[in-house]
Simulated scan of single mutants.
Amino acid sequence: MAKAEKATAIAELKSEFEGSNGAVLTEYRGLTVAQLKELRTNLGANAKFAVVKNTLTKIAAADAGVDEEFRALLEGPSAIAFVTGDVVEAAKGLRDFAKANPLLVIKGGFIDGKSMDAGQVGQLADLESREVLLAKLAGAMKGSMAKAAATFNALPTQAAQLAEALRAKREAAGETAEAVDAAPADADAVPAE
């Protein structure tokens, strides 16, 4: 590879690192071209899967500010999935493909400025997608607001019920007092005939 071609490849890789939300490093040894094409299709539009040269990738990663832990994983035949959208979705796609094709090995990743080992990428893949998590958060917030509204609505209702009960009690007490006033003063006395 000519020096100009190497410089261009390094610049492209650096641009990919800087423009992506994350990168998942894999080893693809033994996979066919058809399997790699299937993987690229499964990852969708928010991830770009590229076979890379380790030396050039190490240089580009260093230029992009990627930490040493990630660069240390660049051994053997390497391919990187550069993710521009939901990193969880791409990690799930890679994990599912690796289950079906054991020759694809996830080595680690670099997400939002932090290196991750293969286990952490697997944990990331176990998370629910961003949309599901946002829907759950919105549902929880809606439920909390509904409970608060019910509580605020219950206060005036309870106050009205209490006032009605007090009025009924006073009314009943007032009727009893009127009944006592209307009775003869000496209720025990027997009228004379």
Rank of each mutant, 00 (worst) to 15 (best):
V132E: 02
A140V: 06
E131I: 01
R130T: 03
I111T: 06
E75K: 14
V83S: 07
T151N: 13
L134M: 05
N153E: 14
E128H: 05
E89A: 15
A64N: 09
G108P: 07
E75I: 01
D112C: 03
E89D: 14
M145Y: 10
A61D: 11
L155E: 14
D86N: 04
D117W: 02
P102H: 13
T57D: 09
P156I: 14
A61P: 01
A138N: 13
L74G: 03
G119P: 01
E89Y: 03
T151K: 12
A91L: 05
L94C: 08
D86E: 14
A60I: 06
K142G: 04
M141Y: 00
L103I: 09
A154E: 12
A118D: 06
L127G: 03
A100G: 10
L127S: 03
D126Q: 10
V66Q: 02
F82N: 07
S78G: 13
D67W: 00
A72W: 00
K142A: 11
G85D: 05
S144C: 09
Q123L: 07
Q123Y: 08
L127Q: 10
E89I: 08
A100H: 00
S115K: 09
A64M: 08
D96C: 01
G113H: 03
A72G: 13
S144D: 09
E131T: 06
M145S: 11
S129R: 07
A125Q: 06
F152Q: 14
A90S: 09
D112E: 15
R95D: 12
A98M: 08
L104I: 06
L103H: 03
M145E: 11
G93T: 12
R71A: 14
L94Q: 04
F110C: 00
A148G: 03
E89K: 13
T151Y: 05
A81E: 08
S115C: 00
A98T: 04
P156K: 14
V121D: 06
G139H: 08
A149M: 05
A149G: 10
A135E: 09
N101V: 08
A135H: 04
L133G: 02
E68D: 10
A72V: 12
V88A: 04
F70H: 07
A61M: 11
K99Y: 01
F70W: 02
V105T: 15
K142Q: 10
S115V: 00
A81D: 05
T151M: 12
K99W: 00
G113P: 05
A138E: 14
L73C: 09
F82Y: 13
A146W: 01
K99F: 01
L127R: 06
G122T: 10
K142F: 00
T151G: 14
N101Y: 08
F152N: 11
A140R: 12
A90R: 04
E131D: 10
L127I: 06
L133E: 05
A118K: 04
G139V: 04
L104V: 03
M141W: 04
I80T: 05
T57I: 11
G65D: 05
P156M: 11
Q123E: 11
D126F: 00
M145I: 12
G65F: 08
A81T: 10
A146H: 01
A148Q: 15
S144E: 13
V132C: 04
D67C: 05
A100R: 09
A100V: 00
G109F: 13
D117E: 06
A154F: 01
L133S: 02
N101K: 10
I111N: 07
L103T: 08
D117M: 07
